[in-house]
Design a binder for these strands. Structure first.
Lengths: 100, 100
DNA sequence: CAAAGCACTTTGATATTCAAAGTATCAATA
DNA sequence: TATTGATACTTTGAATATCAAAGTGCTTTG
């Protein structure tokens, strides 16, 4: 069981980051405001958790202007997708372990 | 998606506690030493996380003597089982959400 | 040109984590 | 029978994490 637990990724042991990653697994790109609405979190919370994921190279952040307003959007990286998938697999293993 | 994320239980956002609960879902009772070995954690880590689960009434702690040595064992409560199941359902929902 | 809004980021008080140090009891060795 | 070691935990606290309020830098509106 230790082997399974070791595969659980600390970065994803957080509601907001779990939500961000889930959203980016199915959406090519999601912008700041949409993500905030989707998750129902404060902007401060979203911003700091985005930073954590970015520093881990799990997501990419793209900033641009859309009619004179800043627009920040996120996408998942290959590394992020693999790490998240590994985390989900570990969770699944933990549940399978329960049954044997 | 906010509705799903809200169902994620903060108490279970921790490797050790996730492991404890998984173990107690399938084992009527597990003692301190066995749990520590099973999870591969330090005794301090196990002890403090057991306290968290106990204060949340998710597990019961039973202390007794087995040939003059203290023996502490844990079991899941009805409340704990329900809470953990709800948490697992939320995780599952989050994954299902990914597919639509 | 203030004042208000928008789209974020930073700050910091508060909460959490977990291993080292501590406690209590028993067993063995000298 | 002191003394050291082992076992079975618990407590402490330094390090780290969380997240909402306050801050920043724009633009727009009155």
């Amino acid at each position: 069981m230790k082997l399974i637990i070791d595969q659980i990724n600390k970065v994803f042991e957080n509601k907001t980051r779990l939500g961000i990653m889930s959203a980016l697994m199915v959406n090519e790109s999601v912008d700041f405001i949409s993500m905030r609405e989707l998750l129902g979190v404060t902007d401060g919370n979203l911003s700091s958790n985005i930073s954590v994921l970015e520093h881990n190279k799990y997501i990419k952040v793209k900033k641009r202007f859309i009619n004179k307003k800043t627009n920040t959007s996120f996408s998942i990286t290959k590394v992020g997708r693999n790490a998240f998938q590994a985390h989900l697999n570990a969770l699944e293993e933990l549940l399978k372990w329960r049954l044997k």
